[in-house]
């Protein structure tokens, strides 16, 4: 006998969990047209499924040209940040039932980064801002033979900002970033915070000077969009405030 599988199609069809949902997607393909357009797709989907599952149904069954990034499908790889009903979210962490499937679900690319095709944006400026804050441990002197010691309390100090998956949901939700792509953006500051407050690191001052720039932390207007957008639950605005405070007090 083979391994038991989960095929219960007939049993399920008796009480079908499926509902009909409209996905209203912002399409753009410069190979075809210079202008972006909204396109509606109707799909049958279990409301407990993810928005990503709906996008796959469209791509696989209706329109193979629909283009988006995805990989892990459970909120760890950070590929599929998009604007769903006007809010930045990961398509793989958003269940259909949680976003009112009665009305059309609008899906568009995240804002502030150049749209390349459909839901795919140019991530290079985002990663450049990340690279600019020296996102790596800097230490002086000889390395110890064993591990560097760090107390559980010191480790806890920067725990929140280690969770970042670089999905760009925060940065592309920030009104300051929308208007000025030179601003480092929340994600880069979060990753600077992760090292500034790591007791093992010795380049906090350098990172603070980088963020003291006119395009640095002072551009933040504390709108909390970033905190709302973060799929990892990072208190992004708080982290930015802590960096601002460290710039003033020079204590971290």
């Amino acid at each position: 006998m083979a391994t038991p599988t989960l095929e219960k199609v007939e049993a399920e069809s008796a009480a079908s969990p499926y509902i009909t949902v409209t996905f209203r997607i912002r399409r753009f393909n410069p190979e075809v047209s210079d202008t972006a357009e909204w396109q509606d797709f109707q799909i049958e989907i279990d409301p407990k499924e993810r928005v990503l599952d709906g996008l796959h149904k469209i791509k696989w069954d209706l329109d193979g040209t629909l283009t988006f990034r995805r990989s892990c499908a459970h909120g760890i790889c950070g590929s599929d940040a998009m604007r769903i009903n006007g809010k930045n979210r990961l398509a793989c962490k958003t269940l259909i039932k949680d976003i009112n499937p009665e009305k059309p679900i609008t899906i568009e690319a995240i804002k502030g980064l150049t749209v390349m095709k459909d839901l795919v944006v140019d991530m290079e400026p985002f990663f450049q801002a990340y690279r600019d804050v020296m996102p790596f441990l800097v230490t002086k002197g000889n390395e110890p033979t064993r591990e560097r010691r760090q107390s559980p309390e010191d480790r806890e100090r920067f725990d929140d900002t280690t969770k970042c998956i670089l999905c760009a949901a925060c940065t592309s939700s920030c009104p300051v970033f929308w208007n000025d792509g030179q601003y480092f953006g929340p994600a880069a500051i979060v990753n600077a915070h992760r090292f500034i407050f790591d007791s093992r690191d010795e380049a906090g001052e350098q990172r603070l000077e980088i963020l003291n720039d006119k395009d640095g932390v002072w551009r933040c207007r504390t709108t909390f969009n970033c905190t709302d957008a973060c799929p990892r639950g990072i208190e992004v605005t708080k982290a930015i405030q802590e960096v601002k405070r460290a710039l003033i007090t020079r204590r971290f």
Binding site: F136, L137, R146, E147, D159, F195
Partner: peptide, 20 residues
């Protein structure tokens, strides 16, 4: 391999003594 990663900055959970 573990010590290399710690020196590269990996934030391992710590014991009360501060070791990995």
């Amino acid at each position: 391999a573990v010590l290399d990663l710690e020196k590269m900055g990996l934030p391992f959970n710590r014991t009360p003594d501060g070791t990995i």
